[in-house]
Amino acid sequence: MDRNSNTYTFIYAAIMVVLVAAILASVAMALKDRQNKNIEVEKKQNILASVNISSTTSDAEKIYAEKIKNQYVINTKGEVVEGEDAFLIDIRKEKSKKAEEKLLPVFECQTENGLKYIFPMRGSGLWGPVWGFVSLNEDMNTIYGANFDHQGETPGLGAEISTTWFQESFKGKRIFDDTGNLISITITKAGQEAPEAHSVDGISGGTITSKGLENMLLEDFNSYKEFLKKKKS
């Protein structure tokens, strides 16, 4: 058949497209379960990391089942919403909802240092979303641990938010000031003045990512504000 004829070109293109689509679709289907499993295990690892428990991909599920004693969903008024699975709540969807419709997951973890509350968060960095889990002590003020991750921040710059040294610096910081106002945590640039107890050092060269993370913390702690106040008193 003439390789330059229209018929040949059309048939060739059609067969190629159908074939490639079939291959990709079947591979995607076949690997879907494994991928979802990976994502689930990773989320459990991240939740555990926010209360300073390190786990590997193989033991994360076991430790999670042992340590995370309680998980529930609340609304912005701080009331528990029945019939929702906290682990399956999609934070991205919840963030775009109106304040009164938001579903907010809370995880409780029993550690050797007492009961900790874990709050998932999500915001935007420079190139894409950033997210994480922050855990508070029972005083609902002092940060016990934090774990952040990102989709595509610049390696060596914004991507540093997922490193230990940066996350460690959140430990012991307080999100309420002395008069009980929620001020969250400031991520400072060199030379920027901020009260020691409420700020951490930013990442040089990663200003926009740091700023995004700072906004995320303020916004999301704000959603949980009523719940935090209720538990505090």
């Binding site: 293109a13 497209v17 995607a28």
Partner: peptide
């Protein structure tokens, strides 16, 4: 087919990259 060779190349490369990613 000569006239759509670039598209064919692109489809092959894209399919391979998606496979690698999956």
């Amino acid at each position: 087919p000569n006239r759509i060779r670039i598209i064919v190349q692109l489809v092959v490369v894209a399919a391979l990259v998606i496979l690698v990613d999956l």
